[in-house]
């Protein structure tokens, strides 16, 4: 029909979209798919295991015991006067969530090449579902942390005390999720072409933990300088540091609050990174099947 208007077409497939043409509305239309992906991730993770979700608790518990022996016992690193199990558990819970999300989202294209090659759906729904389904595990681990916390509170003399900064908790988790999603999508877009990044990246995540105050308090770096720059400042440039520190300060009251300045820096970092991640991801998803 000659009088057909372009606006009547519901689908237009073009070689390349403009850089910022991210179809968020489409992702919303596929929200049912995201919820089903979350369900799948949760159901299948511990199918045919005896202990099931108990593993969520065993993992951090063993990690904390390990840290107590290595970093607390052998290396003798202080924990700002907070009982070691609480200190390590707080850091481990938060970090594990971040690292988990990062590892999963950074392999999105490679792990899902089979489905992506056959059907179209908004590819971002996969990493989004990964980040959201990680929340269940994080929730259970956080609950475990709260139980230990209460036990210490009753026994008394823990030295840990609650501050109002703990109310930032949901924001902190959202920031971790945003950072992980942003980094993960960028890495996943790059690994479609250069597969060695996958190996490099899983290694970097391991090292990254030591650049973040998980097994030591940030206050340890007070008064230390590197080429005339305060190490404290360098540490805080790592966007994960302010988040972890605020969490610890809020729940354990240890050390000092990093300051709103750093927290806002971290937040802005997260927003920019997430935007960049989504744009790059969106760009790659159109033709990644030819490269993967």
């Amino acid at each position: 029909m000659k009088h057909t208007q372009d606006s009547e077409w519901t689908t237009v497939i073009k070689p390349r979209n403009s850089l910022f043409e991210v179809n968020l509305k489409e992702i919303w239309q596929y929200r049912d798919l995201i919820s089903l992906f979350i369900k799948r991730n949760i159901i299948t993770q511990y199918k045919q295991t005896i202990l099931g979700p108990v593993w969520f608790v065993i993992q951090p518990a063993l990690t904390v015991i390990m840290y107590m022996i290595v970093f607390g016992g052998i290396a003798g690193i202080p924990t700002d006067g907070v009982p070691r199990p609480l200190f390590y558990l707080a850091g481990t819970c938060m970090w594990q969530y971040f690292a988990d999300c990062l590892n999963k989202t950074s392999n999105t294209f490679v792990n899902n090449a089979g489905i992506f090659g056959k059907v179209y759906f908004p590819r971002l729904s996969v990493p989004i579902a990964d980040v959201l389904s990680g929340l269940l595990r994080f929730g259970i681990q956080f609950g475990f942390f709260v139980i230990i916390y209460i036990v210490y509170a009753f026994v008394g003399g823990s030295g840990a005390h609650f501050t109002w900064y703990a109310l930032l908790f949901p924001v902190l988790v959202a920031m971790l999720a945003g950072l992980a999603l942003g980094f993960g999508t960028i890495i996943s877009a790059m690994t479609t072409k250069y597969r060695d990044l996958q190996v490099l990246f899983s290694f970097i995540v391991q090292l990254w933990m030591y650049a973040t105050p998980i097994v030591y308090p940030l206050s340890q770096t007070n008064g230390m300088f590197w080429n005339g720059i305060a190490v404290h400042t360098l540490m805080c440039l790592n966007p994960v540091t302010p988040i972890i520190e605020t969490f610890k300060y809020g729940f354990l009251g240890c050390g000092a609050f990093v300051g709103w300045r750093w927290l806002i820096y971290s937040f802005v970092f997260m927003v920019l990174l997430l935007t960049a991640g989504v744009v790059v991801f969106n760009r790659v998803q159109k033709s990644f099947m030819d490269t993967v």
Binding site: W9, T10, T11, K14, P15, I43, G114, I115
Partner: peptide, 29 residues
């Protein structure tokens, strides 16, 4: 699933493609 190098495709209505059946089936579910 992949984008053309040049040209456009215009379509009216929902497109469902059956390049393979049972895509995304998870054996444990």
């Amino acid at each position: 699933v992949t984008a053309p190098t040049t040209g456009t495709i215009k379509a009216r209505g929902r497109i469902a493609s059956l390049l393979e059946v049972g895509t995304g089936f998870h054996p444990e579910m």
